[in-house]
Each structure stands twice: as structure tokens, then as C-alpha cells.
């Protein structure tokens, strides 16, 4: 019973993909990418300025094929994702409750927000030397720096979100007999959820920026390190492979957050 259902679902998806590929905007998109690749290939062959310095797409493709069967390449993905995962998740676990507390308690906010306001403008990478001092291994300091990338974004977004809750919602909820617990779980938290998701979307981007640079500075693995090592060892096509891989990894992470976000806030997509 479930197998034919699955098949029919696949069939619908296949039709959707085909339908999308037939649209004008999809055709234009594919056309623009093909033309860009063509200019790149021809530019490197005929020695146009700037382009002549980088490897042609054909060489990059060869390097990609080699990487695909190289366990070290996939190990780099794993290391980067692990750092992102740890740093990002810790930023959420600590940042979300702290942000909500600061957003809902004026006392706590006025006591703690100034510290965050001072620390926030420091770029996460400026923390690299300091974190190398107080963490025992480079691994931990990279995760810490990644954590910072998402942490401040999370705090400040959530404080903003929790403070801008429409007073009428709270008033209506109080009139209807809500306890303080109800107000938090049924009003404040869902009302702040959109800000939490915005913070996550921005945060994951900052995390990738940070982790790649930190790996180049202090890492011994990961996609950032792969790209840097390719440069140091003169494997130029691999530089481009590394860059494209980072782009894809960042895209996958944001897509996961977006999906998670729309699942958590079903009331926003309809209007």
C-alpha cells in the first residue's frame, strides 16, 4: 500500500521538477550559468586578465572528480560541519533562553545588555588569539569562535523580538485568565519565534564565515583548511573545489534552517 503511494509521490515531484525546468525563468537561470562557465573557460585559455590566473572549469571538474573519491575531502566536510554544529547549537542553547530572559525582564536586561552591546561589535575573528589562549586545543578555540559568531546575533535579535510583542496580546491573555507560565509559553515564546528563526538564519551564515577563516588561521582540518592547503601546495584547481564546496555547504545549512523555520511557524506562510 505504501510503495505505490511513494511512487506516485515521486511521480508528482518529477512532474514538478520537469514543470519548473520548462519555465522561462529556469531557462534563463541555466543559460546564465552556462554562459558564465563558457566565459571562464575561454578566458583562462586565451589569457584574459584576472581569469588567466585561475584554473579553467575543465581542470576544476577533474579535481572535483578526484576529490569525490578521496576520503580526506569528505573528512573536511565532516570537520567543518561538526564545528558549525557544535558552535551553532551551543549558541542557540545558551542564547535563546538568555535572550528571552533579557527580553522579558527589564531588571535583567538593564543589568546585562550593556556588556553584550560592548562585546557585539568585536568581529568573531578578533577573538581567535584570545580564545587560543584560554582553550587548551585549537579545535576548541575554533568551535568557540564559531559559537560567538551566532551567539551575539541570537541574543540581540531575540531581545528585540521579545520586547516588541504587541501589548494587546498580553492584555488579552491576562484577561482570559492566563498564569505567568501561560503568558510565557503560549504568548511570549510563539510571538518571539519569528525573531528566533531570523537570528538562526543570520547566525548560520556568520558561523560559516567564521569557521572558514578560523580553519585557515588555526585549523588542521575542514573545508577552510582544505582551501588554504590547496593554495600552499600549489593545487590551484583544488582551491576552486574548496570554494565551491564551502558555498554548497553554506547553502545546505541555510536550507535546513529555512525548512525548520517554516515548520515551526506555520502561521506565517499563509496570508
Amino acid at each position: 500500500m505504501s510503495a505505490p503511494l511513494k511512487n506516485s509521490k515521486k511521480g508528482v515531484l518529477g512532474k514538478k521538477v520537469k514543470g519548473f525546468l520548462a519555465t522561462k525563468s529556469a531557462c534563463r537561470g541555466i543559460f546564465s550559468i552556462v554562459v558564465a562557465l563558457l566565459i571562464w573557460e575561454l578566458g583562462t585559455r586565451y589569457g584574459l586578465p584576472v581569469l588567466s590566473a585561475i584554473p579553467p572549469p575543465s581542470a576544476v571538474l577533474v579535481s572535483f572528480k578526484e576529490s569525490f573519491v578521496d576520503p580526506w575531502y569528505w573528512g573536511s566536510w565532516e570537520s567543518s560541519f561538526q564545528r558549525i554544529g557544535l558552535g551553532f547549537i551551543f549558541a542557540q542553547i545558551i542564547g535563546i533562553p538568555l535572550g528571552l530572559l533579557m527580553g522579558t525582564s527589564r531588571y535583567f536586561r538593564e543589568l546585562s545588555l550593556p556588556v553584550f552591546e560592548v562585546l557585539r561589535p568585536i568581529p568573531p575573528l578578533a577573538w581567535v588569539p584570545a580564545s587560543a589562549l584560554f582553550w587548551p586545543t585549537p579545535e576548541e578555540s575554533i568551535v568557540f569562535v564559531t559559537f560567538l559568531g551566532a551567539f551575539f546575533v541570537t541574543i540581540l535579535n531575540i531581545v528585540g523580538g521579545a520586547r516588541s510583542i504587541d501589548a494587546r496580546y498580553v492584555r488579552a491573555a491576562v484577561s482570559l485568565g492566563s498564569s505567568r507560565k501561560d503568558i510565557f509559553w503560549r504568548i511570549v515564546l510563539p510571538a518571539t519565534l519569528p525573531s528566533i528563526i531570523v537570528a538562526m538564519t543570520v547566525g548560520i551564515g556568520v558561523c560559516w564565515n567564521t569557521v572558514v577563516a578560523a580553519e585557515m588561521l588555526a585549523g588542521h582540518s575542514g573545508l577552510g583548511f582544505l582551501t588554504w592547503r590547496a593554495y600552499v601546495t600549489f593545487s590551484y584547481p583544488l582551491i576552486v573545489v574548496g570554494m565551491i564546496s564551502i558555498g554548497i555547504a553554506g547553502y545546505i545549512s541555510s536550507a535546513i534552517i529555512r525548512l525548520l523555520g517554516s515548520r515551526m511557524t506555520p502561521w506565517l506562510k499563509t496570508s
Binding site: D166, R168, Y169, R171, A172, A173, S175, L176, G177, R186, I187, P190, A191, L193, T265, W267
Partner: peptide, 16 residues
């Protein structure tokens, strides 16, 4: 809850 207000613009909770 013995006195309930219906507000100017709707105050229905958007997430419910």
C-alpha cells in the same frame, strides 16, 4: 475575565 475587551484591530493570537 468577568470583563472582556474586544480590541480595535484584532488581537487574535496569530500563532493559534
Amino acid at each position: 475575565r468577568d470583563r472582556l475587551v474586544v480590541f480595535q484591530e484584532t488581537a487574535l493570537f496569530p500563532w493559534m
